[in-house]
């Protein structure tokens, strides 16, 4: 069994940066993304139109925005399954605010603030009480969505102001939607945060060994708490975008998204056990999921069938390095 687990070893000589970049996870993903893109453009004549491609971005940007923060959280060794629940409660709170005659900026603030509060609640349960995040957030997932069910029942909030529609339906320039620009902007922010700051290094340190990180002076609990808050805010942002795009709030909004977001992150090469992964990978994985879904949609393949491909992709890309390793070991013998 030992030959199937990646060993940690210190090589005498590092691979050249070019070679390392070529064989890295993001480049593998990029190759997958490009091939999907090319296959799609051959498969359907409608794929390459700018408006079609622009539409394609809508079905993954909201999830991808959450995936950015989730990536950091998973690298630190925690997970948040309640993100879809946070979207539901944030959207509901925006609906409540609407009943009190809130204007567009207030709605946005309410949505993001609700997300932040929910994230902080998760964070407090995990870091202050030392509970395992996977079960805590399964609990808060039901709790948050449950609160929206209590408030809304089988009704829905409608009638959001026209200016509010811009977030989910507006275009910044020509076919480039506001959602897409926001996603790219946030991706840049998260890239810098994870890969260029001390805070980002702390996240890796915590994911690899929380106790060693603690002894090295990293405030583990505080970093994790911040990451939960960030995930909460991102879910709040996604709630604003989604509510604006749909123009209504129901308690069943965004149901099942938690697993899709996590799939995106894991597909992006982030180790579910924590400690490694990149933002680039997550962003490319988001594109892959978006392209697969949209390309197959153009070919009239129903959404549920695409999930087979996404699922196979998820297991496939993770199994691939291990399988290659096993093959290499066998050839050596």
């Amino acid at each position: 069994m030992s030959n199937t687990t990646p060993k940690r070893h210190l090589p005498d000589r590092l691979d050249s940066p070019l070679k390392a970049a070529f064989f890295s996870w993001p480049s593998l993903l990029l190759a997958v993304a490009v091939s999907i893109f090319i296959i799609n453009s051959f498969a359907s004549p409608y794929f390459l139109s700018p408006w079609a491609l622009s539409d394609a971005t809508f079905n993954f940007t909201e999830k991808a925005i959450i995936a950015l923060a989730m990536a950091l959280l998973i690298i630190s060794g925690e997970i948040d399954i309640s993100v879809a629940g946070i979207i539901a409660i944030s959207s509901t709170m925006m609906g409540v605010a609407l009943q009190f005659g809130a204007d567009t900026p207030t709605l946005v603030i309410v949505g993001m603030l609700t997300g932040l509060i929910c994230g902080a609640f998760n964070g407090a349960l995990v870091t202050k009480l030392g509970l395992p995040s996977i079960v805590v957030t399964i609990g808060t997932m039901s709790l948050f969505r449950g609160i929206s069910f209590i408030i809304l029942g089988d009704k829905a909030y409608k009638g959001y102001p026209e200016s509010f529609a811009y977030f989910g339906q507006g275009y910044v320039y020509w076919v480039i939607s506001f959602e897409f620009v926001l996603f790219l902007g946030l991706a840049l922010v998260y890239y810098v945060l994870l890969h260029k700051t001390n805070f980002g290094r702390y996240i890796y340190a915590i994911g690899n060994n929380p106790i060693a990180a603690q002894f090295s002076g990293v405030r583990v609990a505080r970093v994790k708490f911040v990451l939960f808050c960030l995930t909460g805010i991102m879910a709040g942002v996604a709630a604003v975008l989604l509510t604006s795009r749909l123009g209504s709030t129901r308690p069943s909004i965004a149901r099942g998204w938690e697993l899709e977001v996590i799939t995106m992150v894991v597909l992006g090469g982030i180790n579910i056990l924590g400690g490694s992964g990149t933002i680039q990978g997550t962003v490319i994985a988001a594109f892959i999921m978006g392209l697969v879904t949209f390309g197959l949609g153009l070919l009239n393949v129903p959404g549920i069938v695409m999930s087979i491909i996404i699922g196979a992709l998820l297991i496939g890309v993770i199994a691939l390095p291990t399988l290659l390793n096993m093959l290499r070991e066998r050839l050596k013998k």
Binding site: T263, P302, I304, M306, L314, I315, A319
Partner: peptide, 27 residues
């Protein structure tokens, strides 16, 4: 088998097979 022989974390494996199974029902 995936968990045992390929050493993929169970949560990832079952997240993947969850969507594969659901899709298969549709097919």
């Amino acid at each position: 088998i995936l968990v045992w022989k390929l050493n993929i974390p169970a949560i990832v494996v079952t997240l993947g097979t969850l969507t594969i199974f659901r899709g298969t029902i549709f097919l």
